[in-house]
Amino acid sequence: MPPEPILRVRGLKTQFQSAAGVVRAVDGVDLDIYPGEIVGIVGESGSGKSALAYSILRLTSGRIVAGEVQFRGQNVLELREAEMEKLRGDRIAMIFQDPMTSLNPLMRIGTQIGEALRYHLRLGRRAAAAKAAALLQAVHLPDAERRVHDYPHQLSGGQRQRVVIAMGMSCTPDLLIADEPTTALDVTIQSQILNLISETRQRTSTAVLLITHDLGVVAQLCDRVAVMYAGQVVEQGRTADVFADPQHPYTIGLLRSTPHGRRRGEPLRPIPGQPPRPGEIAAGCPFAPRCHLAEARCQHQAPDLIHIGGGRQARCLLRTEVAYEPAP
């Protein structure tokens, strides 16, 4: 009996109104996250990774026009805003890319960590402060007791990201969404922060949705990976399987274009062309103009995300559907 997914996204569509027309940032995404696993989301810039993450928490400035986001069996898109606020930071937490800007410059970091504790756990000021210090200790911030009184600018970038993680983990959520949590950091700090995330996950069995550009990070950290292109998930499966035997032409291109994905000795080959611009997506497969395997039917027939065996899914006409089988 497979466990129930903690998060089940179905047919999610989020759109932005811009001067150039409607931008379909998230265009029918299906995604499952099981308790305690780390799922990576990769894809080119603009493929809708952040928009997806923000939509799950209903923090997007765009309009969610269709789909379901089931968290522990409940569709959060139907919740009232007050109920949603109870969920945010308590059961689903999110941390952002830039630790320089994701902390309020005028508030002591202890207070900022304490906020979620006060709202969700109903802790008093004093108790929240004590818990904040403990949380900072857990993310290995040296001198945590004293640091709670610091302002963000007194900390280095890596230290701030530790604070941000402590903040996200403060109520031990079931799901932590991390949107490129290391992109703004030095390489050496990056690996420390990633280690911290995986260590924290092991300690608390919190599931993590990790958005990143770095396939190396995915290979090292993620149990499963979803590849996004033009607002859709085009391939999804266990990380080892996807990396060893990519099933979607875009994934193949993506792996070939980065040092972590290609086979030893092979040269780096960037994917030719550009992702479609908002509003340009016509009928057919969105990847067709750049696809080295494209056939005539790809121009007018849009592929669905289908099960292709081994718990994997791909969105390509060249693959054949098999009966659903749960992930091994």
Binding site: G89, S102, L103, P105
Partner: peptide
């Protein structure tokens, strides 16, 4: 529009409190 406001919302701070506790203070300064 700054990220720390989003962070506060992601923590579950109600919108009105975000405006009072986070946005207004920075605006006043």
């Amino acid at each position: 529009g700054q990220e720390f406001v989003l962070t506060a919302r992601a923590k579950g701070v109600p919108r009105a409190r975000v405006i009072v506790d986070h946005a207004f203070g920075n605006t006043l300064v």
